[in-house]
Nucleic acid binder design. Structure first.
Length: 349
DNA sequence: CATCGATGTTGAG
DNA sequence: TCAACCTCGATGG
């Protein structure tokens, strides 16, 4: 379920609270007993996200690969910094509003001109290292609490006892002295050796958070413009670009005013580059705020509404039959590769 | 309380 | 192309 931004946030939780610690691994559900035994007692040495996949490294170069798939989720509990502040003003970035195209402008063919990720001003007390983790720390000292991380994040009840009883079918429990992470419902969960991790990553397209400084954009543009496949399908292809899911797919296409059926070959170089830059922007925004906010440039009222209502966060996703926010035309939904694809037939003609 | 649908991927046919 | 995987929030009665 989670698209790329959530996985990066989960990896960040592990980096913050587990890396460097000795970890006890178990499989309360039983299905991962053997794998858990392989890594239990080792120190976690790294936590990384690549697109929708997460890799946790342990001593002896053993890696745990996790893909949450449709329903997967991690529940954290214990002395963790629950990042609940993201939905507040903290998540509100400077709205570099040089995108007349998106707000209410009906300027048809104007390509996306998203603010580069780096241009979004960090909030006042931004950390050094280029990391913007103020939202993680702003809540103060770690609290003994629960935090569910799937497609959305929910703060649970404060903890009475530690560790808490596993709830439901927990495939893996990772535990340090002060914190617990429970994994349920993943599509993939396996222990790998470094070469196997490399093989998985090699098959993945670029992730803007990892490849932005390198050749990520060029790899993306080249791959897109080589294909006859409709761009609406290409954006979902994890071999072309990592981390985009059904929501970001629809929203990126709308923001670019690009028809989903356009063959990759016919997407101009400029437009392909704009798509990559917009994905970089939205991903960074999603990681920073914990929200899939694909309509930026909202006024305070709109922002409040968007936070309250999931349905007010997007241009076209999940809005079939509703009027386009820009031109009023009914948003269309059609199935593409068994996934629901939403777009505005007028703006994205 | 039962049913539906979902922000994903794989593998069988 | 489609079922299976597997969980839970939203929806409706």
């Amino acid at each position: 379920m989670p698209e790329g931004h959530s996985v990066h946030r989960i990896a960040r939780q592990f980096a913050l609270h587990f890396v460097g610690q000795s970890v006890t691994a178990s499989s309360p559900q039983g299905r991962f007993a053997a794998g858990a035994a392989q890594i239990s007692g080792m120190r976690m040495t790294d936590a990384r996200a690549v697109g929708k996949q997460m890799f946790l490294e342990f001593d002896e170069r053993l890696w745990l690969r996790v893909h949450l798939g449709m329903y997967g989720a991690w529940d954290f509990a214990g002395d963790i910094t629950a990042d609940a502040t993201t939905a507040s003003a903290n998540g509100r970035m400077g709205q570099t509003n040089q995108r007349g195209t998106v707000v209410g402008a009906e300027s048809g063919a104007a390509p996306v001109s998203p603010a580069p990720a780096s241009a979004a001003p960090a909030s006042p007390a931004a950390g050094q290292n280029g990391e913007n983790e103020d939202s993680l720390h702003s809540i103060g000292a770690p609290r003994r609490t629960r935090l569910r991380m799937s497609e959305s994040e929910k703060l649970g009840m404060p903890l009475e006892t530690f560790p808490p009883e596993p709830i439901g079918a927990v495939r893996v429990r990772l535990r340090t002295e002060g914190a617990v992470a429970d994994l349920r419902g993943p599509t993939a969960c396996e222990v790998l050796h470094p070469e196997e991790v490399q093989a998985v990553i090699a098959k993945l397209g670029p992730d803007p958070l990892l490849d932005d400084a390198g050749d990520g954009e060029d790899r993306f543009v080249t791959a897109v413009r080589k294909k006859q496949t409709p761009i609406g399908l290409i954006l979902m292809d994890q071999a072309v670009v990592s981390g985009i899911g059904n929501v970001y797919r629809a929203e990126l296409l709308f923001r670019a005013r690009l028809n989903p059926h356009t063959p990759g070959k016919l997407v101009t170089d400029d437009l392909a580059r704009a798509l990559w830059k917009d994905w970089s922007y939205l991903l960074e925004l999603g990681v920073r705020t914990g929200q899939m906010m694909t309509m930026d440039d909202l006024d305070d009222e709109g922002y409040t509404r968007a936070l309250a209502n999931r349905d007010d966060r997007h241009w076209v996703y999940h809005r079939a039959g509703k009027p386009c926010r820009v031109c009023g035309t009914d948003i269309v939904m059609e199935l593409a590769a068994a996934r629901k694809l939403y777009y505005c037939p007028h703006c994205q003609a």
